[in-house]
Amino acid sequence: MAIREISTKNQSVNFTFNKSKLLRELLVVISIGLFIGFLAPFGMHELPVFMSISYWVFTCVCGYFIYSPLINLGHKYLSEKFSAPWLRVAISSLIASILMSLVVPLITMIFFNSPINLINDFLHFLPKTLVIGGVITFFSVWQNHVKQQQQQLELSTKVIEEHASTTDTKSIQIEQFMSLLPINKRGQLLCLEMDDHYLKVHTDKGSHMLLMRLKDALLQLEGFPGLQTHRSWWVASDAVVSVNKQNRKMTLLLSNHLEVPVSRTFVDAVKAANII
């Protein structure tokens, strides 16, 4: 039996660099540059449209080659200190915006032959790079997130379909039984313990009580490798660590350090199973 759970809590953010990804993101950046250039903000409406568009496309492309590597480095080197991806992006974007505020005056000088006053220009451009760079970065990260979610959904759907095509009726019954447990208790099945009218299910994630008879549980676990050792106990074969004998008493030590009794009725069956 295989129980698969898809956890998103500790997923790492994957920003794989490849040619198709680069071209796709550059196309988005150029489109943004064209859009901003056509709007001609910050007094650029007085310039020819092609000049405004050229300036903003070039600036956005330069910004991409500043922001993208820094964000990737941020995810790589800040992951131990900051678990939230958005926080790593925010810190990396802030650093990238500072660098971009030093680069923009140079671009402005190249396009418009304007003199540079580094400190004044830096303070002038910093708020703009923070806003524009932040918006473009957010859009890029959101696009990557959506793509990863789609890939994960496709992968999970494929796994479920493959699993369904190769799973027989008995396996389905076993998984249905395990689905009765809380998600945080599902794992490797170790043993079942009857306690009055309740069934205590032990897994490597802990234990949980079910209102169920042992014989009903064994019907659902038919085909799963294990055996009954007592009228109140059933153990999974691969959970047994050792067989302990003392006088006429026999017990099984399980991987969770639980000691399971073997009654006289089931001693021969345990010996015949040759589980150790």
Rank of each mutant, 00 (worst) to 15 (best):
V146S: 09
M194V: 00
S156Q: 13
A40T: 01
V49S: 11
T137C: 12
A90M: 14
N244Y: 05
P115M: 00
G133D: 03
M100P: 03
P182R: 00
C62V: 13
F50E: 10
R4P: 02
L23Y: 14
I132Q: 06
L219M: 11
I98W: 06
K9E: 15
Q173S: 15
Q143A: 15
H208N: 09
T229V: 09
P225Y: 04
F35G: 12
V49D: 06
P85N: 04
N244F: 03
F138S: 12
L126G: 05
D121C: 11
N14E: 15
N247A: 15
M178K: 03
M178H: 02
H75V: 08
P127G: 04
P85V: 07
I6D: 00
S255W: 02
N120H: 12
A2N: 09
G37C: 09
E80Y: 10
L73W: 11
L87T: 14
Q149M: 11
K200S: 09
Q176P: 00
Y55F: 15
T169M: 13
A236M: 08
D196E: 10
V262F: 07
A2C: 04
H75W: 08
S101I: 08
M51A: 15
T108A: 13
L47T: 06
Q173L: 12
N120G: 15
L130R: 01
I136E: 04
S68C: 11
E175W: 02
F58H: 05
L218N: 07
M51R: 12
I53Q: 04
L218D: 03
R186I: 03
V13M: 13
S92C: 12
V103S: 07
L210C: 02
S207N: 03
G74R: 02
V61N: 07
I119N: 11
A84C: 05
I3S: 06
N144W: 08
V104G: 05
F122V: 09
D268W: 02
S140P: 02
I160E: 14
P69L: 14
K21G: 12
N144E: 12
K249W: 08
K158E: 11
D204S: 08
